[in-house]
Amino acid sequence: MGAIRAEIPNLVRTVHSLAGKYLTFSLADEDYGIEILKVREIIGVMEITSVPHTPIFVKGVINLRGRVIPIIDLRLKFEMESREYDDRTCIVVVDVHNGSLLVGMVVDAVSEVIAVVDKEIEPPPTFGVRLGDAGSILGMAKMASGVKILIDVDTIVGVGVALEFQDI
């Protein structure tokens, strides 16, 4: 089921070119990229109010200039090892569903904005069962500075937490 779900968006995506500008950031030793147009702003880590009855990767909510927005920890979301926040830790606020939803994602550090062209992009490799949900990966960009994993913000935060939580 999960595989099928991952297949369909991939098929659709190949129609659109993935080339464009990406904001890159790091999680552990890996580099990730998200579409620059989805990024609303980058803020430092502030005090987060935790919300009960949410999955572990939901750190809670913060006050973003009068708006209450949820914060998710990308390391935990990708089931990676968690790590203490430091002064390099950032919250990347992304704009999902055309601005109707703002979500903050905690990342280890923000690197740079890169321009990716089509020929540098490879479709996501298949990892089989080792990587449960790879559906959020758009593709891999082979840059001179290393491989960047291009991820789709909409897929990551697209599903409401309440729904996901019910499965747990």
Partner: peptide, 14 residues
């Protein structure tokens, strides 16, 4: 709390 965190049991809002 936004669409992402709606229907959290016990929490009416922030």
């Amino acid at each position: 709390l936004g669409g992402y965190l709606k229907d959290i049991p016990g929490v009416a809002g922030g």
